[in-house]
Amino acid sequence: MSIELQDISLIYNKGTTLERVVLDKVSMTITQGKFAALIGNNGAGKSTLAKVIAGEVIVNEGKVIIGNQDCTNIRDFDRAKFISRVFQDPGKGTARNLTVLENLIFASRRDLKRTLVLFLKKDPRAFFKKKLQELNAGLEDKLDEPVFMLSGGQRQILSLLMAVLRPSKILLLDEHTAALDPEAAKLVMRFTHHLLRNHNMTTIMITHDMSELDYCDEVYAITNCKIKKMHKNF
């Protein structure tokens, strides 16, 4: 699915003495399957823009078009059918007290009745073990391990795999490597690139790490409430 923002504006406390413009007539188009990075200073509005796309925040003006659908006033719980998100906190995208296998089962049955009973009758263990072996992240032998016992990098890799298992067309990555040490961050970015290349999801990644831009097709910068497409060799 493509993402198109048409002159969107977001103003907090509009018409009051506390009025604050966060996004000012922002327009951008990410075509199907592109991997775009979003950069900018802290507080520039990067995460807010991701929330606008996800439907967590509704804009004051403009349109949010996803695919061929006007989603401007559609809330996040309805957009979740086609949008997946991975957050900075490695624990936010997983259920920490469930096992790796249980998390994967829930993710794969996102739009179906969330129960383990029927799915376990089909024994998905072999399927998910093969998927994890392909990633070579050391998770294939941890299917029965509670997620809270994984490293931060492993949890983010699991979150990414869960995101692409869902019937989503769009992936939003909100500084998904920022809480990791440098080596784990590099590992997660390699897996991010590998998974997106194979699943053709339209992706927007918020990042402060300029080295991660090498993985992206396009780079956009937010400054002074505006957005600008950048050259990758800037």
Rank of each mutant, 00 (worst) to 15 (best):
M1F: 13
E4G: 04
E4D: 08
L5F: 10
D7V: 05
D7E: 15
D7Q: 15
D7C: 11
L10K: 01
I11T: 14
K14H: 10
G15D: 08
T16H: 05
L18Y: 12
L18M: 13
E19Y: 06
R20Q: 15
V21T: 13
S27D: 06
M28T: 11
M28G: 02
T29C: 11
T29W: 03
Q32T: 04
N42A: 15
G45N: 02
G45T: 07
K46W: 01
S47E: 04
K51H: 12
I53T: 06
E56M: 09
E56R: 02
I58Q: 04
K63Y: 04
V64N: 07
G67E: 07
N68T: 12
N68S: 13
Q69N: 10
Q69Y: 10
Q69K: 13
D70G: 10
C71K: 12
N73I: 09
N73W: 10
N73P: 04
D76S: 10
R79Y: 10
R79N: 11
K81C: 13
Q88Y: 10
Q88G: 09
Q88E: 12
D89C: 00
D89N: 15
K92Q: 15
G93T: 10
T94G: 07
A95N: 12
N97F: 09
L98K: 09
L104Y: 14
I105D: 05
I105N: 03
A107F: 05
R110C: 13
L112T: 12
T115L: 09
L116C: 01
V117D: 09
L118R: 13
L120T: 11
D123K: 15
P124Y: 08
R125F: 04
A126S: 15
F127L: 14
F127M: 14
L132H: 05
L132I: 08
E134V: 06
L135T: 04
L135M: 09
A137C: 14
G138W: 07
D141Y: 14
K142E: 08
K142C: 13
D144W: 08
E145D: 12
P146C: 06
V147Q: 01
V147Y: 03
F148A: 11
S151P: 01
Q154C: 05
I157D: 00
S159H: 01
L160G: 06
V164Q: 08
V164K: 06
R166M: 10
S168K: 02
L172S: 04
L173N: 10
D174R: 05
A178P: 03
A178I: 01
A179K: 01
D181R: 08
E183G: 07
E183M: 14
A184R: 08
A185D: 04
A185F: 03
K186L: 08
L187C: 13
R190S: 11
F191C: 15
F191D: 14
H193F: 11
R197S: 13
N198I: 07
N200Y: 08
M201F: 09
T202L: 04
T202K: 03
I204Y: 00
M205V: 12
I206S: 09
E212R: 03
E212G: 07
L213C: 00
L213Q: 01
L213K: 00
C216R: 00
E218Q: 02
V219N: 01
Y220F: 09
A221G: 04
I222E: 00
C225I: 02
K226M: 06
K226Y: 05
M230A: 00
M230H: 01
N233T: 11
